[in-house]
Computed example of a mutant assay.
Amino acid sequence: MIIDVALVRRLLAEQFPQWADLPVAPVAVGGNDNRTFHIGDGMTARLPSAEGYVASVEKEQRWLPVLAPHLPVPIPAPLGHGRPGAGYPWPWSVNRWVDGDTARRDTVTDLTAFAVDLAGFATALQGVDTGGEPAAGRHSFWRGAALDHYDDETRKSIAALDGRIDGAAATAEWDAALAAEWRGRPVWFHGDFAPGNLLVRAGRLAGVIDFGTSGVGDPACDTVIAWTFLDAPARVAFKEALGVDDATWQRGRGWALWKALITLAQDATATAAAREIALITRR
Rank of each mutant, 00 (worst) to 15 (best):
A136W: 12
A268F: 02
G31Q: 02
N95S: 11
A179W: 06
A226W: 06
G100T: 02
W142M: 14
P17M: 10
V208C: 01
P89N: 12
K59P: 10
H81L: 13
Q15E: 10
L261P: 05
V54M: 08
G144R: 02
D210G: 06
R204S: 04
A256M: 02
D175K: 12
P69M: 12
I262K: 12
P48V: 03
N197F: 09
I3H: 01
W92H: 04
I262A: 00
A6S: 07
F193Y: 11
V208D: 00
P134G: 13
G196A: 09
L47M: 05
T36L: 07
R185N: 08
R183V: 12
D110C: 14
A124T: 05
P48C: 00
A103I: 03
D245V: 04
A124S: 09
L64Q: 12
I158P: 01
L118I: 05
A159R: 13
G252A: 07
V8L: 03
G80A: 13
V98E: 11
D99H: 15
A6H: 04
W258T: 02
T281G: 10
F114H: 06
A274S: 14
G215Q: 00
P76V: 01
V116R: 14
A160H: 14
F238P: 03
W63H: 14
S214L: 00
P65Y: 14
A68C: 14
P17E: 09
G87L: 12
D246R: 14
A247C: 06
D152K: 07
D222F: 05
G131L: 09
Y53V: 07
P84E: 07
H190G: 04
P74A: 13
W142C: 07
A265R: 13
P74T: 10
A168Q: 06
D166V: 06
W258S: 03
L11Y: 02
D106R: 08
A124D: 01
V128R: 08
H139V: 09
V244I: 15
M1I: 08
M1Q: 10
A220W: 02
R204T: 05
D192R: 03
E51F: 10
H139N: 09
A20Q: 08
V24S: 01
A6W: 01
G137L: 09
D99L: 13
V116C: 08
T123W: 10
G184H: 11
W97D: 09
A122V: 15
K259I: 14
L118K: 03
A160D: 12
A86V: 08
I165N: 01
N95V: 14
P84M: 11
A270H: 08
D21T: 15
A274D: 12
N32W: 08
L261G: 05
D101I: 00
A86E: 06
L205K: 01
P17H: 11
A122C: 15
M43Y: 07
T213R: 07
A172T: 14
A77N: 02
D222P: 06
A68P: 13
L64A: 11
K239P: 01
I2V: 12
V27K: 02
T171D: 13
T102G: 04
G80N: 06
R253N: 07
W63K: 08
A103C: 08
A28I: 07
H38G: 01
D33L: 03
T130V: 08
T44C: 06
A160N: 09
T109Q: 13
